[in-house]
């Protein structure tokens, strides 16, 4: 697979088996993004900083964020992203075990575009990730290989702002 044309997805989760499961589920949905991972919020923030300063690869097309993690939780990561204009365009989907209405409300308020509760059954888990596939968009586009920072920034804001303000996207996950 040519990673340069694939969509990039950052998965932040302290549970390795869940990262495996997410990749597997996306694959089942016909989505094979280039996945980078961080196992806690602090690592994720450090990685995002590197991406912004250009010392690492460009920002991902989307980020999947767990809430309950050691060192730095998902809500703190959301707050950090909201405070960084350079990160504002990146759509963030929360994928967590917590079905607490308070967590959901807080995350959406902090700028998460999706709040998905990790499902108990495999089939449901796979189905619950469909909005992520939509968020990433079709992988078979012809984005410029290694786009400059500015290029990627103009490509993503539309997608991101649409995702952030479009309530039906959020509603869809409340099953």
């Amino acid at each position: 697979m040519n990673t340069s044309t694939a969509k990039r997805l950052l998965i932040v989760d302290d549970n390795e088996s869940d990262i495996e499961l997410i990749t597997l589920a996306l694959e089942e949905l016909g989505c094979t993004p280039a996945v980078s991972t961080a196992s806690n919020g602090a690592d994720a923030v450090a990685l995002l900083d590197q991406m912004v300063t250009g010392s690492s690869a460009a920002l991902p097309d989307a980020m999947l964020l767990d809430l309950n993690m050691p060192r730095m939780g998902g809500q703190e990561v959301l707050a950090y992203i909201a405070s960084q204009p350079a990160l504002a365009a990146m759509p963030v989907a929360v994928l967590t075990t917590s079905d607490s209405p308070r967590d959901r409300a807080t995350c959406l308020q902090l700028g998460a575009c999706l709040y998905i509760v990790k499902a108990y059954r495999l089939a449901e888990f796979v189905a619950s990730l469909k909005p992520i596939v939509e968020l990433l968009g079709p992988a078979t586009g012809t984005p410029p290989p290694n786009p400059p920072q500015g290029g990627s920034a103009t490509a993503t804001p539309m997608q991101a702002s649409a995702a952030r303000t479009d309530p039906p996207r959020i509603e869809r996950t409340r099953t």
């Binding site: 088996s17 607490s100 108990y120």
Partner: peptide
């Protein structure tokens, strides 16, 4: 309960 108890249970179920 909404997180710590459900997390291992979900892993059992999914796996």
């Amino acid at each position: 309960a909404s997180h710590d108890l459900q997390e291992p249970l979900r892993m059992i179920s999914v796996h």
